[in-house]
């Protein structure tokens, strides 16, 4: 998210005061990034934010960047665990 300052025909874009919104389950965190020059090939979508509207559903809570990183790590480990049978076996061995 950020203020769109410029763009061109390739969808290259300049975002001022950009931040990255990380969402893990019901937790979210805005990590400040600064001025971003984005190469068009990496763009999926550019959407205008309706500032009058609630940005996120009310049940979602804002947390600090350390907390969101912890949540991300936990989620990644959970999906790794589910993903590979071998990982599951290692987990059982450790017990």
């Amino acid at each position: 998210m950020g203020t769109l300052r410029s763009f061109d025909q390739f969808a290259n874009a300049v975002l001022e005061g950009a931040c990255e919104r990380v969402i893990v389950g019901d937790l979210y965190c805005d990590i400040p990034l600064g001025l971003y020059v984005i190469r068009g090939e990496n763009v999926v979508l550019i959407g205008e934010l309706d500032l009058d509207k609630e940005e996120l559903p009310s049940h979602m809570t804002r947390v600090s960047s350390t907390e969101i990183k912890r949540a991300q790590k936990a989620e990644r480990e959970a999906s790794d665990l589910k993903g590979t049978m071998r990982k599951r076996m290692e987990f059982l061995d450790m017990d």
Partner: peptide, 30 residues
């Protein structure tokens, strides 16, 4: 490339970051 207005994500529960996006530009390649 496509421009849409009055947008909503079909699966809003899984894409909460799309809630406040009312109009958007979508790159043709995606």
């Amino acid at each position: 490339n496509i421009k849409l207005e009055n947008t909503r994500a079909v699966d809003q529960d899984n894409f909460p970051h799309m809630l406040s996006v009312r109009n958007c530009f979508i790159r043709g390649s995606v």
